[in-house]
Write a protein that binds this DNA or RNA. Structure first.
Lengths: 207, 207, 207, 207
DNA sequence: AATGAATGAGCCTTCATTCAT
DNA sequence: TATGAATGAAGGCTCATTCAT
């Protein structure tokens, strides 16, 4: 849909540029929104502050999003994508603990445009109330569990493994729990973190 | 602070009863606030709705709390106490998995006045922004980790155990992660949950 | 409902006063709203200006009305009541022309709290779009026509009269038309007006 | 003003075509505006919706009109012209009732580009506030009354007629009243309407 | 101690209008 | 000539907080 077909490019040559502009602006808004949401939370952040952060007028935002809630949902979807991407990087056992340790803490500062643990938590809390958010999150969760399960299966290919599902569940809990920790102890002792992960992960990933 | 000093008792002999009244009223307000916060979130819940739920006038609330934020902090402290109590109940390995399974899901419904996963998440997110909350949560976290560590020590008394700290960390992550799951999959398959916990917990609690 | 029953007065002695206050405030708001609506129209009048005119804060208005639209509808119902009252005064032929002449023009100035021709017109236009207003106006119209019909019947009691309905229709049109004229020529020559009414009304009201 | 002066024609020979273009565009805008105004009212209709209806950009409208208000005034002038045209068609007594009956109701639907009763009412209400509109409407009204008077005179040529003025006034009221009715009871019983008009009109148009 | 009416700042959103292209 | 992105001033409405009673 973003990719303009050649025909369209001929008959409506502006359309391509326009589409790009729309994407750029949406990106600008979402980026500002994320910063504000991280700083103040979904509800406390105001459209005015988002507009100021994005260096545009409040009215203009409504050309690209129908409401504040639509922005919130877009941010949530983004966070979910980030989450999945992060999980997808966990592709072999060796690096797993190292990777999680490295990533721990370089987020949630408002500087990284990426995944924010605080937003993930707020999102989960919001899912309790907003059906739209609940749906998005639920869909994501089941996808993610499948991802983890098949990753476990791949790891142990050829060997008989039982309980992939329950291990996937535990892994997911662990990852969620790390997000919470990240929020509450951003400056945790990395040594402890690495030791802990190196102790538990092998137990979960080997037959 | 709750304990009336002797002097006060002499000059104002009613003070004892008055203090009890103050506690009762605060309790009434906090109970209502918790219900509202669970239902709507910290920001979306209004003082008016809290007042209505507590069956008192909005103005009266300000006799017992200086601001909405003060109520939020009180609720957070309450949640932390609940959390610690819950953890304290985990006193022997045998019941651990069972207990966590049983408790999973009977919260967050607004019916239990106790611990609410959604509030815990919101609280963690809020800790990112409010230094007071951050302090309270940090103090709690370190206390809790010590609790868990000494519990692990007790479990393995006489046996040589290494890495109690890192295991305590993992356990804490797992518990946090379960809270997140509770929020996102309140109706999870209990069989899966029990199996998963029975698989991982023994590994964490035995030498 | 405004009249507090004796029982209520005993068990809830404040309730009576409270009810009166509610009525007083609603009245104050409606009075201010009418002034503003006459001056600026339903849409151009702002809640802020209504609040200022009523000498209260904007927020307070929402204690007594749920929305601006509710105020508009209340004003319209009021206008309809005024209209009916005005019509009800036309009880004998002799005074009819005189009465209409006298009433013509002493309205619509914003000073009279009564019927405003401009509002009646705007109301009719709005009925085209808002189903609620349309319903209110339709109900009123049929009531009014019945009123006029029975008034005509009373006038000609004992004599054979045909076409009461069509005469009632014409009369209603004439009255509506006078409202329009009132708006457009507030300072019309009263002599012309009286002559005109004296020429047409006898033809409509006698068998 | 539409007629290009000779000088302009020499120095800028294209000007004639340009003038035509201007008229076409203005027409396009007014036509769209009327549709929108009928649907939503003067205030609720937005420039954006007018632009969309006219299939042009909002900015372009400002090349042909200086403001929304200017469009409103242009529309009002148009409506007045429509009104006068409609009245002018009433040239003999025989068809008068029939004509009015036929025309009743085929307006205000948004389908006819012509006269809209709702707009006429809104216009009258607006005349109360905007002096420009008031002036336009007043000028129209007096012209119209003269039209009607001379029509009545023509009808009764050679016969002694008194009170042409007051009859013209009544007729005008009746026509205005019919516009109001049209708005409020668009689906009235045509039989009743015809009967009513046939009863009253002869009385007004014959000596 | 208790009420709940009142305040007013601030929020989300809309829209007439302008201007770079 | 024409576009439509951009502006920013209101507008309707909410709600934490205060205060007269």
């Amino acid at each position: 849909m973003q990719q303009t077909t050649e025909q369209e490019a001929i008959t409506r040559p502006v359309s391509g540029k326009a589409q790009i502009r729309v994407q750029t602006q949406r990106e600008r808004i979402l980026s500002a929104a994320q910063k504000c949401f991280i700083e103040d939370g979904f509800h406390a952040a105001s459209m005015a502050s988002i507009a100021a952060t994005a260096a545009m007028s409040p009215g203009l935002i409504y050309r690209y999003f129908n409401s504040k809630n639509e922005i919130i949902i877009a941010i949530i979807e983004r966070q979910l994508i980030c989450l999945r991407t992060e999980i997808a990087m966990l592709d072999d056992t060796v690096n797993l603990a190292e990777r999680l340790t490295t990533r721990y803490g370089n987020c949630g500062t408002g500087l990284t445009p990426g995944l924010s643990p605080a937003l993930v938590l707020e999102m989960s809390a919001e899912a309790t109330r907003d059906p739209d958010i609940a749906a998005a999150v639920a869909a994501f969760d089941s996808t993610l569990r499948t991802d983890i399960s098949s990753w476990l299966d791949r790891l142990n290919r050829g060997k008989i493994t039982t309980n992939t599902d329950s291990r996937a569940f535990i892994l997911q809990c662990l990852i969620d729990g790390l997000k919470v920790r990240q929020t509450r102890e951003p400056h945790i002792d990395r040594g402890l973190l690495r030791t802990a992960l190196n102790e538990i992960l092998p137990l979960l990933t080997r037959p």
